[in-house]
Structures are given as C-alpha cells and as structure tokens.
Design a protein around this nucleic acid. Sequence first.
DNA 1: GCCATTTCTTGAACTTGATTAAGTTTTGGC
DNA 2: GCCAAAACTTAATCAAGTTCAAGAAATGGC
Lengths: 189, 189
Amino acid sequence: MQRLIAHIGKFIELTDEDRETILSCIPYQEVKKKDYLLRQDAVCNANYFILKGCFRQYYINEKGLEQIIHFGIDNWWITDYDSLERRTPSEYYIQAVENSEIAVLDKRVREELFSKIPGLERYFRLILQRAYAASMQRIKYIYEFTGEERYYHFSNLFPEFIQRIPQYMLASYLGFTPEFLSKIRSKKI
Amino acid sequence: MQRLIAHIGKFIELTDEDRETILSCIPYQEVKKKDYLLRQDAVCNANYFILKGCFRQYYINEKGLEQIIHFGIDNWWITDYDSLERRTPSEYYIQAVENSEIAVLDKRVREELFSKIPGLERYFRLILQRAYAASMQRIKYIYEFTGEERYYHFSNLFPEFIQRIPQYMLASYLGFTPEFLSKIRSKKI
DNA sequence: GCCATTTCTTGAACTTGATTAAGTTTTGGC
DNA sequence: GCCAAAACTTAATCAAGTTCAAGAAATGGC
C-alpha cells in the first residue's frame, strides 16, 4: 500500500495523519487473473488503484468480439468514470490480465475522504488531466499511423509490456486483428 | 459571462462573493474566425471557456496535412492539458472556426482562484472526468464503426453542428479524407 | 457584381487491413 | 507428463478507404 501513498505524495503534500486516514479508508485487495472488477451492465462503484499487476478494460462489439480500449498497470488508477459518476450501467468489463494487487476506493468513501483531505480533490484532478492528455495522444496516434506503425511505436515505448500480455490483446488494443499482427511480426526477422 | 457562472453553478455551490471573484479573475475576450488561441511549439498558458462560438484543435501530421483531434463549442473548456501542466511546447493549434467569445483562465490566476475558492478544484475534476469519458467513448467509436457509420452517427447526434463547419474539417475529425466524405454523401440522396 | 480563393465532387488505380478457414504451437490444470 | 484449451500462424480472397488529378461550385472581400 506504500505505493499508493507514494503516488499521491508525488502530487500533493500529505501529513502523517492524512496517510493514516487514506490507509484506513482504502482497503487492499488481491485479484486473481481473469477476475473482474466490473462487468457490462453493472454500475461501477469505485476507483481502483493498481498496486501491482495488469488489467484490461474492454467491451463486446457488434460482431461479438472483445475490443480492448484501455490497459491499466502498476501505479495507474482504473475505473469507468461515466458509469461511476452518472450511476449508469457500464458498457465495459474491467478484468485482471494477471494476478494483481489493488487498492479499492469506494465512491461513498471517496466523498468522505475529499472532505477530510481536500487536497485529494486536486490529486484526482491532476491524475485526470494526465489521463485525458494521454487519451488525446492515443487518438492522435490512431489517426496518424497505420496499424503496423502503431505496433512498432508501441513496442518501442513499452518493450517489457509486450511480453506480459497475449498478442491477441495487443492486437485488439492497437485496433486490428490478431492475424494482422501475426503478419507484421513475420515480416521482420 | 453569465454562461460561465451558470456552468460552474451546475457542478458546485457558489456564493455571491465567489461569483464576483470569478468574474474579476477570468476576463472576457472576443476572438475572430481563424485567430489562434494556441500554436504548435508554443507553451499553453490558460484554460479557455467558450461562451459562444466554435474552435478546432489540430496538428500538422507527417504528410503536412491538418488533423483535427477535437472540437470545442459553446459551454466547453478547451486547452492543451499536456502543454499547460508540464510547460512543454504544444503539438497542437487551437483556432477559432467562427467568430467567438471566450473567457480566459490564466494558469497563474487559476492557482490563486483554487486557493480562494477550493470548490473550483472539484469543478475542474468533474469537467475532466466528463472529458475523459467522452474521449474514451470516441476511441470506442473509432474502433467499432467504419468511416461511413461514424459519419451517420455524428450527423444524427449533432445535426446543427454539421451545418456550422466546412466538410473537410468534419472529414478530418472523423478520420478520413474529404473525398471519402463526398462519396458517402453522394450515395444517399 | 466580379474575381480570387476556398470548398466540394468525381473517377480510376492502389493500399491497408479484415475475413475465413485450416493448421501449428504453447500453456496450464490435474 | 498428458491432454484440452488457448494462443498463434499462414494464405487466399475481399472490403474500406486513400491517392491523385481534374474540374465544378460556393464564398467572401472590395
């Protein structure tokens, strides 16, 4: 759990009391590979901080295929903000790709925490700014590059990550078929 | 400027004093069609609230073509969060598509305002949650639908908006060429 | 109201990546 | 260590969308 405290501490000042409050409000939890934090049609109830591990956020598209729109790894928050805030059924699944450890910030607890530690409101604003900027950047890449270029770009940026996940998940995230990824990889030997 | 106050008021409680503080800190400004709020390589210095009008956020891609990644219209905030927060040169242009009216929240003033009205931190967090959720939704649409489907979906959602902007901008935003948009439109008579 | 600029259209040749289907390799549970 | 399930590969065919080039229509400034 020290990872979470350290992460928050990078963005805002925390007193020892704040740290204790946070630790007492945000429980630690282990999640097994393939377990779900959220399923389609459920209402999302928490923000999840990934202490260790990897999650994927995906939906089932019109053809019945899983389409991954987001990965979360160590030190990232993951949730469905739309479902969480508007209390609507989610369109997404959030599933552990490997055995993971998380910290669970329940919606109601979050509001209490915000009143006890107002700085946390700022922390989440800063986190969201980053996430939003990254999301815009992602749209930029989707438009700017071909599938093949996105693959090379991604594997240069996150070479270790590529080893961690099955290729079909990577293909889905990058927006093409596993067959096409296979073709790209066979080209370059 | 009452539009801005009203918008903030929808998310957080404001006292009359807060309202005055906001009005005194966030100047009103008129922007002519084709004027820029931000250019590539400049460092972004403010959040802009669009009181009335329309802006586009775009970059110049490898082929030298303008690629629009975002539109901002009445009652939306627009900025380059990455450049604004990290003080890095922006990759984007933000340009008025039509004569517009905006409110300018300078970065430094923003920090002062946050200390005077802590609730604003919450307001921006909520705004960002929405923007981030919308951005994820956009990625979903890009992956789920063909260009033609995205066009019909967009024109059903925002029929008036389609009339306001040139078709080549719409094509760019939707991620295909103006020629292709022309072809789509000629199909359906 | 005219001219220049900007925007939109059309069509042919081409590229990227999807689909389908079959076969191969790897992984994990017992 | 074996077997079933999961993951990956290969290849032929097809669809979506680009590129290039040329011309037509709309718009705005004076």
